[in-house]
């Protein structure tokens, strides 16, 4: 037994997080935000410069895992700030009753389709879009209808709405365009679907491997390839019916660190934070940046029509839409 407890002690010593100093702002977020290539480290450094505090991240796999964690912790949560939910999750997040109203001036925030909420503050957004490989597809679809009716030999990879938020976004998209005709449209589209992956990483990996010439991703995805890889091979297809938007939001909990948390939310919509977003989170900023964005961002698709759905409405119809998709994609 002694050997085992020794191993445990070693494991503890090696792994236990460093205890934080005096005033700590604990931010719950998702992993790709805090990864060293994400905006997290830069955000931490920039905020710590002004706040005289320590920022500590707790990073979960994704926005959904973040929400689950909050549901499990309830009032015992250590989070001062929860950053990384999207508009589809807002309704459920509110139901946890953990959040406080932010009370800050968000007049500087502009999001296509508009968004304003007493609790949640947007920090970036992106439109869902079909990204295609210009070397494999000469005539990309110009509408969702063209995607559905197009050549079944040109495949697309989408994400599973049961396990991922882009997948859920696509379900709403289909429904917004096809209404009650959606099941038939699903049947038609399923001939073009190569596979339905559990998450974005799997789908995008298959796409860049060349397994399929199209993938469901974001209008901002090409920016990464153009800036970080100097490669303009992958482009977004603009659809005439419009694109659904994913707005990423943050909120403060009913924390004792109220002032500090509120000052973070203010910081979040200030240029210091917004500057970091485009080329680290590869999403669009929601407020003024101190310098103009890299010109590559002007070349991206900026949808003329934004399809958005009120959070309470999307929560209500989610299950019905997913079940409809399951039934239509069956044998």
């Amino acid at each position: 037994m002694r050997g085992i407890s020794l191993i445990f002690a070693t494991a503890m010593a090696a792994l236990s997080p460093v205890l934080a100093s005096a005033q700590t702002l604990t931010i719950y977020t998702y992993e790709s935000f805090t990864s060293e290539w994400g905006p997290g480290p830069k955000v931490k450094a920039a905020f710590e410069k002004t706040c005289g505090c320590t920022v500590e991240y707790v990073s979960l796999a994704d926005g959904v895992a973040l929400l689950t964690r909050l549901k499990m912790e309830g009032g015992a949560t250590k989070a001062d700030i929860v950053l990384g939910l999207d508009t589809n999750l807002i309704e459920e997040a509110k139901a946890t009753n953990l959040f406080a109203e932010h009370g800050i001036d968000t007049s500087g925030v502009t999001v296509p389709g508009g968004f304003s909420d007493p609790v949640f503050v947007p920090y970036d957004y992106g439109h869902f879009a079909v990204i295609y490989d210009t070397q494999a597809i000469k005539n990309p679809p110009k509408s969702l209808k063209e995607l559905v009716d197009g050549n079944p030999d040109e495949k697309i990879v989408i994400e599973d709405p049961r396990t991922s938020t882009p997948g859920l976004g696509f379900i709403y998209w289909m429904r917004a365009v096809y209404g009650d005709q959606t099941p038939e449209a699903w049947k038609k589209l399923s001939r073009r679907i190569l596979t339905v992956t559990p998450g974005w990483s799997e789908a995008y990996g298959l796409f860049t491997k060349g397994e399929a010439p199209m993938v469901l991703s974001y209008t901002t995805s090409p920016a990464y390839h153009m800036i970080a890889e100097k490669n303009d091979r992958y482009q977004a297809a603009e659809f005439s019916e419009g694109h659904p938007i994913q707005i990423e939001v943050a909120a403060m909990t009913r924390t004792e660190n109220e002032e500090l948390a509120r000052s973070f939310l203010k910081f979040m919509i200030s240029p210091d934070f917004q500057d970091i977003i485009p080329e680290n989170n590869w999403m669009m900023p929601v407020a003024k940046t101190s310098t103009p964005l890299n010109p590559v961002f002007d070349k991206l698709v900026h949808p003329k029509i934004t399809l958005s759905m009120a959070p309470d409405e999307s929560a209500k119809v989610r299950k019905a839409y997913v079940d409809e998709w399951l039934a239509a994609s069956g044998k």
Binding site: L15, V18, S35, W37, V58, S59, S201, G205, Y224, W282
Partner: peptide, 17 residues
């Protein structure tokens, strides 16, 4: 923030393009 493993680093890098 302090608890990362090689597979989680791997998946995080896949998730960041």
């Amino acid at each position: 923030d302090n608890f990362i493993t090689l597979p989680s680093l791997l998946y995080a890098s896949l998730g960041s393009y």
